[in-house]
Amino acid sequence: MGSKTVDKALTMLRTLPRVSLKNIRDNPGSKMTQKRGRGQHGGDYHGAGNKGSGQRQNYMRLGYETGNRPFYLRFGFEPYYERHHLRRQYPPVSLLQLQTMVDTDRIDISKPIDLTTICNTGLYRIFPDQHQFGINLTDEGADTFQAKVNIEVQWASELVVAAVERAGGVITTAYYDMHSLQCMINPTKFFERGIPIPRRMIPPTDAAEYYADPSKRGYLADPEKVSEERLVLSQKYGYNLPVIEKDPDYEMLTERKDPRQIFFGLNPGWVVNLKDKVILKPLDEELLQYYNS
C-alpha cells in the first residue's frame, strides 16, 4: 500500500513542472497586505502626536515655562533699539577721505562744499528713503587735514569742527528733509524731471536743538555766537584761529545757503531746463509767498 502511494507521488512529480522563478510564490500569510487608512494622511495623528497637550490642543500660553520665572520676565526692560527704524542715519565720510578727494581733485575747494558736491564725486552714496539724512564727517585723519574748505555737512563731532577750523576753513551743520535730499543726491536727474526746486523743510523737533546750537555750528545758530564759539574751540584745542576776515577767499568762506534753499544760488520754486539752458521763475504772488515762507 505504502509503496503504491510513493509510486503515485513519484509519477505525479514526473508530470509536474519543475520549480522555477515563474511558478514560485510567497507562503500564504507571510506578507501583510496594505491597509487603507481613513483620513488625509492614512489615518495618522496629523503631527499632533499621541497623548498630552499636543493631542488635546490645549497648549500652554506663549513663554510659559511650567512654573519657572519665564525668560521674558527674568530681566528688566532695556529698549536700546526703540524706534531704531525711524532714527536718522548719517553715513560717514572721514576727514582723510575728504582730504584724499581734495588731493585727487575730485572736489574743488575754491567753491563751497555740500552734500551735492560729495555725491557728485561718485565716491559716496546715500539713500534718503532708508532714513539716511546726509554726511557724518568723522575724525579719521583729523591730524593731517589741511584743506581750507567751506563745508556743509549734516553731522560733525567737536574734533572735526576743530580740525576744519584749524586749517582755516568753515564748517556748518545743516538739515535737509528727505525730499530735498532726493534732489541733492542726483541733481541732473532732478532737473530732468522738470519740476520746481522744493523748499527745504525746517528740522524736526528732535533735531532742531542740534541745528540751532552754535557749538555744533548749526545753520540756524546766531552767526555772532558761532564766531564766539570758534574762538572758544580754538582755545580749548590750542591752535591759532585763522582770521577769516583777512582771508583772500573771504567771499567763498562766508557763502551760506538760506535755510529754505537746497542748491547754492538757486531759489526754491525755480525750474531748471537743462536742454535749453533756461531757468524758469514763478511770478505768481501765491507761489512766491509759498516758496519764501
Binding site: I279, L283, D284
Partner: peptide
C-alpha cells in the same frame, strides 16, 4: 495760467553748472 519769467543769465547758470557732476 501760472505766470513765470525765463532767465538765460549766465551768472545764474553758473550755479546750475556747479551742481552738475563731471
Amino acid at each position: 495760467k501760472i505766470k513765470f519769467e525765463t532767465s538765460t543769465s549766465p551768472e545764474e547758470w553758473k550755479y546750475v553748472e556747479r551742481v552738475l557732476p563731471p
